[in-house]
Write a protein that binds this DNA or RNA. Structure first.
Lengths: 102, 102
DNA sequence: CAAACTAGTTTGCAACGCAAACTATATTCG
DNA sequence: CGAATATAGTTTGCGTTGCAAACTAGTTTG
């Protein structure tokens, strides 16, 4: 016993948040995704997706480019190297937890 | 593709919180644990442990009994059936996510 | 009897997540 | 043309959260 689980306490909260974990997961397999695709895929409202993306961008986990598709706004999101790394680390910690407690 | 990951959005937030996930995990393998043991094992401050335990108790996930060891207060915590079930469900969902995205 | 220790609880507050309201441009319809 | 509707997002309002720090109550030690 005396299993060391305290690692959980330093999970990256930015990624731990389910909505953002979802976003980052989608981005990690997509190379690039636009706002509406993310919205559909993640099942979030525009408002909440917008807020979460801002947070991820602020952290440097996601790069956001606003352009146009024809005449309509188009917001394209990409996971940065930093974001990819944080995501990988998160998964490692979480899987380690699952394994230690299986 | 078009993997359905949206299940993440209904993770039980009570258990998803790392400090509480830690507490519940410890309780799930201990049958019963006192306040100070939990504190040491989880690496939490007394204040935060107290607050998290209250929340878990309120949800009916943990049963808390205050007694005495000699003349000193002794708070003993047990996971309830409901808590055990919620914990199991959480693990299942999280592992499903990990598997689907491995 | 005052200081220090034990075992917790409560408080103060910034940050968070969500729903609802809002902005800005574009298109459609009478 | 001008009002209504749609598209693609952003901002706001607000109750809730988690954390650190302060507090409580009883106990032991000097």
């Amino acid at each position: 016993m005396s299993n060391d689980l305290r690692g959980l306490n330093d999970l990256d909260r930015l990624i731990h948040e389910p909505a953002r974990l979802l976003i980052v997961t989608i981005l990690s397999t997509a190379a690039s995704a636009d706002f509406l695709f993310l919205q559909r895929e993640a099942g979030l409202t525009k408002g909440n997706l917008s807020a979460h993306l801002s947070k991820l961008e602020e952290a440097g986990y996601v790069k956001i480019e606003k352009t146009f598709k024809g005449k309509l706004p188009l917001t394209v999101c990409k996971l940065t190297a930093k974001g990819q790394k944080a995501y990988t680390a998160y998964r490692q910690q979480m899987q380690a937890f699952m394994d230690k407690t299986s």
